[in-house]
Design a protein around this nucleic acid. Sequence first.
DNA 1: AACGAAATGCAACTACTTGTTGCATTTCAT
DNA 2: ATGAAATGCAACAAGTAGTTGCATTTCGTT
Lengths: 202, 202
Amino acid sequence: MAATPRQQPRHSQKRPARRERAIYRATLEELAVADYGALSVESVALRARVNKTTLYRRWPTKAALVHAALESIVDAFELEASTGSLHGDLLTLARRMFKITRSVEAQSLLRLRLLDEPEPELARIAAKLQARRQAQLARLLEAAVDRGEVRRGTDLGLVLDLLGGMIHVRSTIKKMRVDDALLKRAVDILVSGISLRPARAR
Amino acid sequence: MAATPRQQPRHSQKRPARRERAIYRATLEELAVADYGALSVESVALRARVNKTTLYRRWPTKAALVHAALESIVDAFELEASTGSLHGDLLTLARRMFKITRSVEAQSLLRLRLLDEPEPELARIAAKLQARRQAQLARLLEAAVDRGEVRRGTDLGLVLDLLGGMIHVRSTIKKMRVDDALLKRAVDILVSGISLRPARAR
DNA sequence: AACGAAATGCAACTACTTGTTGCATTTCAT
DNA sequence: ATGAAATGCAACAAGTAGTTGCATTTCGTT
């Protein structure tokens, strides 16, 4: 259940050794294509080109390994500048959401959130990471809201989940192609739905 | 890989024996709380109060068992009458979606869709079932569309996925409470987004 | 009610996967 | 160059998955 290797690494602790990072990456990659239940420490070892004893020595259990890999995810990213319009900002947001959705990190985080059963702790951590990421995304909308383009009382979290949920369902679950035209159509609908000015057909 | 028990049951074939149905149900229930990867034939046997040899004899592999359980899902349900307005019909649709989302069947279908890796066949079947269900749901919107309340050229599939995606993310992934007020707010946004008449704050 | 075929339960077993340990070899800060 | 820490390797122990033979039960048929 340890979140970090048992022994303090003697190398410079500043950045995790590249081997360690390779292992975390391999773990997440495995988790992006397979269940947590189906994930085996050996498969991670194989992918990371490392002996399985190495893994077992540093992380006593599968859960500990995944835990550490999770903690290694840094979810900071740069925020784009505001485009100056609600429509533009929401589209920027949608594109960013889509990009994130397809990442290895997001895929494995999803698997862990769905987990919840044998390792609730992992589900909790995954949830926290995703919440943080979502909060960052939400800031992309702030500018438009501050500009007063959005109808008062609008539930912004809901708008985010409408957009993000659609992207998630189409991309991850239905494995449909999600292109920019689709994102634009979705944003069109939502903008007409929440903007102050009466909706007009585009 | 057999979808049905190896031997023809000698009993009346009309309806599957109740034991068989109990086994399928146990399989889906297990699948609703655990990975496909973590799913074990023994756990299904335990839940169904049946000896594991019985399962192994009738379905040679775990995949075959799950396959059969999947096929046993009947996804017909009654369609509510139209409420006479786009808003009302969409709300009815949303409520129905939410109800379905929480069902054992939907939970296990989701797990199988996410699978795709060791058993693409299962993912394919799960996809087909969900598509059929979605098509049924879409019919709830037909009335409103026929009435001409919806803007021409509106991508109805997209609207469905906006709504359904949000419900899925909130309910299944984030495990947030989804109440009727939330559904109403979502429908409000979407209706203003797609209806012909200029949107008005409610 | 009685018979017999099919299905099930039970227990023992094999095969495979997972996790552990001892020892030789490599890595790396000093 | 040296030694402590980390790794690889191979052999092992433990646990889980799947199989088999046989006794018992179930249930349609007569």
